[in-house]
Design a protein around this nucleic acid. Structure first.
Lengths: 210, 210
DNA sequence: CCTACCGATCGGTAGG
DNA sequence: CCTACCGATCGGTAGG
């Protein structure tokens, strides 16, 4: 693996675990096995390295997101199944990319303030907007075909985001390894609240895997 | 105001905004208007000051929590109203004590690792356990009197916590000033999912204030 | 990618 | 609560 990639990788781990101010360039260099000053062969400042890591994670999420929704759209599942799979996919991302997720959540909630605007811009342009758009499309379809109650899709996206953030917070706070039950229960009750009234409540929560 | 109180107050603001490593003792001293070394008349180390702030916020939350639930138990509201008021009270705490809430969330999700165990111990002993207990009592009552579906109260507490954390994350991420709509929508859908089946869905979301 | 450095700031101490 | 100071480490540079 190239030295630049190793710097980015170790920087991601350390920034995720200790934050921007809790991570020094010496710590990153030590983790890579080089001298601190060698980092400056690749980046002109700590801020530049940090933003590069932000871009790296944003690009990773963008790729995963596009791939997932492309596959999801190929088959014509009911909205109920589509949303459940979005939830499962999102949480699987946490399991697969813990460092990236922890980093992303940290800089989203508590960014170093002199980089806040740039972080929010990158997040919006690379990930947040398209994720929001894909979700809104699914919800709109669900309202149109009668699967969902007639609620504005913007509102449904906001509610779904609350569910996602709530579950992710629980995972981060309690350091869960096993998230399946949490996701299933959370989904079950969320779906009970948004589905059209003519679907029986006793019929929810029995979703099979793809 | 005493100098010690001013140190605690400015430390809380700075730790909340910049975190443990992003806040230096000089910054705190500057904010108070004293010299850095004067802080050592009150605390023996940065860690000691930080933990004192943790204790202060924990004590604040404990007092608010005990007061709120004492009042809540005086009147015999339906579980639906009780839970909605818990949600409203919790979010009002955010509005009233933004610094404390931001600090509390930061140290809960991303504590400085050498203080992680102590922070979690203080949080559990002072706030988290009793909040959990009060919620479980309400849910248990709701299941017993038939207002709620027959779901273990532990599970209902976890779901309610997801709702709270999801809403709080939305507020922190988007810097909302107006949280009323988010809370009402979130509550509406949460309640639709947990209420007993014989209550009509169209009857929810019309909760009055106390 | 290295050695050798820089001024600034860090948490913390001595002594009053 | 102050002045004066400590060694260690910070982000960053010069020069190879």
């Amino acid at each position: 693996m190239k030295s630049l990639d190793r710097i980015n990788q170790e920087a991601l781990i350390l920034f995720a675990e200790k934050g921007y101010y809790g991570t020094s360039l010496s710590m990153i260099a030590n983790a890579v096995g080089i001298r601190k000053s060698s980092i400056y062969a690749h980046y002109n400042s700590k801020d530049e390295l940090f933003i590069a890591v932000v871009q790296f994670v944003a690009g990773l999420y963008k790729a995963k997101l596009e791939q997932f929704f492309a596959v999801l759209k190929e088959v014509d599942h009911p909205v109920e199944h589509q949303l459940y799979h979005v939830l499962r996919w999102y949480m699987q991302l946490w399991v697969d990319k813990k460092n990236a997720t922890k980093f992303w959540r940290r800089i989203g909630l508590f960014p170093p303030e002199h980089l806040e605007n740039e972080i929010k811009r990158i997040s919006a342009e690379t990930v947040a907007q398209s994720f929001h758009k894909e979700l809104a499309d699914i919800f709109r379809k669900g309202v149109e075909n009668g699967e969902l109650r007639n609620v504005p899709s913007e509102k449904l996206v906001a509610l779904f985001q609350i569910l996602i953030d709530g579950i992710l917070t629980a995972i981060l706070l309690n350091d869960y390894q096993e998230t399946t039950e949490l996701i299933q229960d959370g989904w079950h009750h969320f779906w009970s609240g948004i589905k059209a009234a003519d679907i029986r409540q006793t019929n929810t929560g029995e979703i099979k895997n793809v």
